[in-house]
Computed example of a mutant assay.
Amino acid sequence: MVADLLAEAAGLMLIGMIAVFTFLCLLVLLLKLMSYSIQRFFPVKVADKVTRVEQSASDGVSPAVVAAISAAVHQYRQQQ
Rank of each mutant, 00 (worst) to 15 (best):
M1S: 15
V2M: 11
V2N: 12
D4S: 15
D4F: 15
D4I: 14
L5K: 08
L5N: 04
A7W: 00
A9L: 15
A9R: 14
A10Q: 09
A10D: 01
G11W: 00
L12E: 09
L14W: 02
L14H: 01
L14C: 01
I15G: 02
G16W: 08
G16D: 12
G16N: 13
M17F: 05
M17W: 04
I18T: 12
V20I: 15
V20T: 02
V20K: 02
F21T: 08
F21M: 03
T22K: 01
T22F: 04
L24Y: 04
L27K: 00
L29R: 03
L29C: 03
L30T: 06
L31D: 05
L31A: 11
M34K: 06
S35R: 15
S35K: 14
S35A: 14
Y36H: 05
S37N: 12
I38C: 02
Q39M: 05
R40K: 12
R40W: 08
F41D: 07
P43E: 04
V44A: 03
K45Q: 13
V46I: 15
V46S: 10
A47T: 04
D48M: 10
D48L: 13
K49T: 01
V50M: 11
E54W: 08
Q55V: 05
A57L: 15
A57S: 14
P63I: 07
A64V: 11
A64Y: 00
A67Y: 00
A68T: 04
I69N: 05
I69F: 07
S70K: 15
A72P: 02
V73E: 08
H74L: 10
H74Q: 06
H74E: 14
Q75L: 02
Y76C: 06
Y76I: 09
R77I: 09
Q78H: 07
Q80E: 09
